[in-house]
Design a protein around this nucleic acid. Structure first.
Lengths: 238, 238
DNA sequence: ACCGTAACCTACGGTCTCGTAAGTATGGCA
DNA sequence: TGCCATACTTACGAGACCGTAGGTTACGGT
């Protein structure tokens, strides 16, 4: 029960999140015969989180063993227990960080005024998250230890959908539509973007910005009035 | 390696798929002291598939044990091994049937002419599947034993999306759009419907037909031109 | 040079689960 | 009635995994 949630910020500063230290099996001696690595507590902790994220992403929670994580970190099991109190503890921290990250990015994007712009920003934000933190996205999509309830993708999606809901609700009222339908439309929009993102993770064919543009095209104009060559309003480079 | 795929038809004839026999823990003596049930081979097989589907749906593949399935059927483990050669065998048959069922329903719906009608039919078909075979849908959404690759929800979604793709591709060509974009739009549409369905499984607030109508509304007219009170073209009752 | 503390290890207990070997009951049919 | 295939059981081996007890090594300050 010593799950440590500690710092809320991610702490990763590398490009994709990899810290500086070796996260391989520690069997490759670098230059100076650095026998055992003996990291500092925080370093090891970050490394374990990193490896855990990767493994959970590709094998799921139940398919990943603590020993595997430890082994990949070049360390023995008790180290993991020291840091996170157990498998669930580690998983909890990984998921928590990932949810925070995603929510921050998406919420941060939901500030503009015009709904179409909102949509555009949000879609781009999600794609951006998926591109930058692919493993995290895979984990969030997978199942959690205790099955559904809190912490699932569904609940996360709902969190996001709820925000979209509020915005849509206002817009619906202003336009004279039934605001009770906002949840449905919010869910549909989020689902559209989320699953397209899931598809785009594997087949990264059109560029991120282009995908976002087309999503907005579909969501805003509908199949009946698609624009042949949609462009994003906000011009970005990355 | 004695996985038995046997008959391709479902074989279930009851309303929701429950066979006649008792699928509880077999501890409740009916009227005449029916000590042990001693079903026929096929009956037991169906019962095991049924129980397996339920358990896999609520606990996932790895979270479900063969003993649990056997116990719930009022039978011992080797019976399961006799029928399906192992846990994966049973799971495979369950998933296979479920995918067939869903694909049949959706594919069957993708025959009409006008794309808008297609969309409507397909959306309704998926919702119908979800309502009728909720457990199956839950299984398909969850993860598979060997992680991704074939058999995942993603791959199933892709199967469906591919069909939508073809249809969209033709339509795009006819309208002068780039048919290379068909996959993207197909994915977005399927995702929209699928995730809305996933949401609707829990909060069944608007009726199925109404949900379908709104989905079509969004997908066809877009947020910019929503109709206040969308109605389905084909009028159905169930 | 010493010593305390933080980082880390080996070894093991206990539990769970898959899968199998070998034996028992049961119901229909000659 | 007696046979025999089919349905089903008990019992167990083997392995994986979680989590912990208790001991060991190296680093940093003094």
């Amino acid at each position: 029960m010593a799950i440590d949630s500690s710092s809320t910020n991610d702490g990763s500063k590398g490009k994709t999140s990899r810290p500086a230290g070796p996260s391989g099996s520690a069997a490759a001696p670098g230059g100076r015969r650095a026998r055992r690595v003996r990291m500092t507590g925080a370093e090891r902790r970050e490394q374990l989180l990193d490896i855990g994220r990767t493994l959970f992403a590709e094998r799921g929670y139940e398919g990943t063993s603590v020993e595997e994580i430890a082994a990949k970190a070049g360390v023995s099991k008790p180290v993991v227990y020291e840091h996170f109190g157990g498998k669930e503890g580690l998983y909890a921290v990984v998921v928590d960080r990932e949810m925070r990250q995603l929510l921050d990015m998406v919420t941060g994007a939901l500030t503009a005024g015009h709904p179409r712009e909102l949509l555009e920003q949000a879609a781009f934000a999600l794609l951006d998250y998926i591109e930058t933190f692919t493993d995290g996205f895979r984990i969030l999509v997978r199942d959690s230890p205790v099955a559904q309830s809190t912490g699932t993708f569904a609940s996360l999606i709902s969190d996001i959908a709820t925000q979209v809901e509020d915005i849509l609700g206002l817009e619906f009222k202003a336009r004279g539509f039934d605001p009770k339908l906002a949840p449905l439309y919010a869910q549909a929009l989020v689902g559209m973007v989320a699953l397209t993102g899931q598809w785009w993770v594997d087949a990264r064919k059109p560029k991120k910005a282009e995908v976002a543009a087309h999503l907005v095209n579909l969501a805003w104009h509908g199949l009946g009035n698609l624009e042949p060559k949609p462009r994003l309003i906000g011009h970005r480079k990355n």
